[in-house]
Computed example of a mutant assay.
Amino acid sequence: MEVSGKRRTKLTYSVSHGSAEDFVLFCIPCDRDGKRVPAKGFCTTCNEHLCKTCYKHHKKPAPTRNHVLLDEDSMPTTHTVQLYQDNFESCDDHQDEKQKYYCRDHDIVVCSVCVTLDHRTCKVEYIPKLSKHILDSEELNELMAEMKSLEEVCKLSIKRAKDEIKAISENHDKVIKAIHQFRKEINTRLDDMEKIVVEDAERISDKTQMILKSLSTGIEDIKDETVKKQVCLDNLIQRNCLDKLYVEMKVAKKRLIQIKMKAKQHSRINNNETVSFVKHQAIIDMLEKYKQLGEIVKSSNSENDAMMKETSTPPEDTSLNLEVVEEIDMKSASDTE
């Protein structure tokens, strides 16, 4: 496990474990990722050996664009391990001192003052002495493997998070689409309900108008017949046709009785009737009771496409107070308990 507070600023190597004749130079950047790739070039600026791929892409990024590169024939063939001097961290408690010691008893790095004050009886070792074989230590390898494993777990978690975000977005679209579809269904149903009421009102209006038109026509006929009888009688009076006048008078008198009865029947028809629209109280109550089209509910199954309830029931009335009034004896004669 890597000691906290100690930061390795730069440690590069390119050696193989064997004789000098079997020595192979490896790519330093790839080696940091745990890959052993033979070196095919060298960067004099970075002072590192590079593989064919790293050599090819070394000049593309802006930070390394102006670095000086040597090909395989010109690169150094030395197998010296290059250790760059570590920069020790300052002690948190003693800013002028560097944390150059490791306390095995407390598993922490400390400065010389800390050793003197708090770790005199502990097993304290000098870090530069311990770090000589750190590259081949099992602790470093296990730490690197653990960090690599953690990196893969993080990558998987990130992927899952992105997938969840995508699923949530798609689910949101489904919910909004369902709300809009429900609204369309309500609009269609309201249009049908409105059409029924409008047609009923038009039917009543047409029937009333037809009756009134018939009444108007009947009265118009009575008026015309009355006028004709009057003209006929006036004409006979002026011509002094007494016999004819007598006959027409009797006929007109009898017809007048019939006309009066017909006019009286027409007058009984109420032509002042009006209609009005009465709202259904149940619909008014429903609009007062429900302030939204439905409810948004959560589902524990993320793969379930049915994310919404088709219908929602009103919440249970928790305002009711239950009280025991009396106990009823349900025991029969055959009960043994």
Rank of each mutant, 00 (worst) to 15 (best):
A20P: 05
E288C: 12
D317K: 14
S300I: 11
P29R: 08
K331Q: 07
V231H: 09
N304F: 01
V251P: 03
V113I: 14
M286D: 12
L50R: 06
E220K: 12
D118W: 01
D234L: 12
D335V: 03
K298W: 07
H266N: 08
L320N: 09
P38K: 05
E310H: 10
D305W: 01
V247R: 05
E194G: 09
K155M: 10
S332I: 05
I168K: 04
H180C: 04
D234E: 14
K10C: 07
L69K: 02
I222W: 04
D305Q: 03
E139H: 03
V3W: 12
E21G: 03
I237H: 06
R255P: 00
V251L: 12
M249Y: 09
E185W: 07
C51Q: 02
R36H: 07
K195H: 11
K254Y: 08
S205W: 07
L293Q: 05
H266C: 13
N87F: 11
K162H: 11
C111L: 06
T80G: 13
L245T: 04
N141A: 11
A306W: 02
K213H: 05
E142P: 03
E2Y: 13
E164Q: 13
H106W: 02
E194R: 15
M249C: 02
E273M: 04
Q85C: 06
G218R: 11
T274E: 10
H119M: 02
I296F: 15
Y55R: 06
L140I: 03
K228I: 13
C114V: 07
S90I: 06
Y102L: 00
C30S: 04
I328K: 15
E72V: 02
S302V: 06
T336Y: 08
S14T: 15
E273F: 04
C103F: 00
S4D: 05
K253F: 07
I259D: 09
S137M: 01
P128D: 06
L135M: 06
Y13A: 11
E326G: 07
K132T: 09
D221Q: 12
K262F: 08
T313D: 11
L212M: 10
V175A: 01
T336E: 13
Q95V: 13
S332E: 11
S216N: 14
P314A: 11
G34E: 03
E164W: 13
